[in-house]
């Protein structure tokens, strides 16, 4: 599950990392591992396949090739289309669903790294969560007991997410200090 979620956002994450300047594939892997990898580092092959997909879609371009010892090292740079894509991704709230935190975390860190408004991301997500909660609350009010129980389950999960969002909002300053160098 985690892998799926990650795969869905690895492209955007790598794109985001490129926003601060062109990098080699290996640098990207290192940066990714450092900021988001936690206990599960990114495989180099994943970086390579993702980058080639992004290259094909015109979101990155090869900035230069460094020949040296070992394998050739391509330096990637983000394109205008790439920046727009990252922007769109960050601004779009995730569909509220379980185990969302990693994605949101990634988004927040990337926003901090790229000097975008991280609070906006959280608030947008929050509004999306609440929208869903309203729908569920409404369904609960109209529905029978089974509906109520199911809705309540979902509501409690959403509530937990929202708490996490709130907490993260409150800790944005601290997080920025940790993520940004200097």
């Amino acid at each position: 599950m985690v892998c799926i979620v990650l795969r869905m956002s690895i492209g955007h994450t790598l794109l985001g990392l490129l926003e601060s300047g062109p990098r080699h594939g290996y640098d990207l892997k290192r940066a990714f591992d450092e900021k988001f990898g936690h206990d599960k580092p990114l495989h180099y092959g994943q970086v390579y396949s993702t980058m080639s997909r992004l290259l094909k879609n015109g979101l990155v371009e090869v900035d230069g090739i460094e020949a040296g010892e070992g394998p050739e090292r391509k330096r990637y740079a983000i394109t205008e289309a790439g920046i727009t894509d990252v922007q769109r991704w960050l601004a779009t709230p995730e569909k509220p669903e379980p185990y969302l935190q990693s994605t949101l975390y990634t988004k927040v860190v990337l926003a901090l790294l790229t000097h975008r408004d991280a609070a906006d991301i959280l608030d947008t997500q929050r509004a999306e969560h609440l929208r869903l909660m309203r729908i569920l609350t409404d369904r609960k009010r109209r529905g029978d007991l089974a509906d109520q129980l199911i809705c309540d389950h979902a509501l409690f999960h959403l509530e937990a997410d929202l708490r996490w969002l709130e907490l993260t909002s409150a800790r944005l300053g601290k997080l920025a200090k940790e993520v940004l160098p200097g």
Binding site: D123, R126, A127, H129, L130, M133, R134, L136, T137, L155, F156, L158, E159, L162, R163, S169
Partner: peptide
């Protein structure tokens, strides 16, 4: 939030 879910719209004060 579950109480706020009874609302039509939400304002956050920070």
């Amino acid at each position: 939030t579950r109480v706020a879910a009874y609302s039509d719209r939400e304002i956050v004060v920070r």
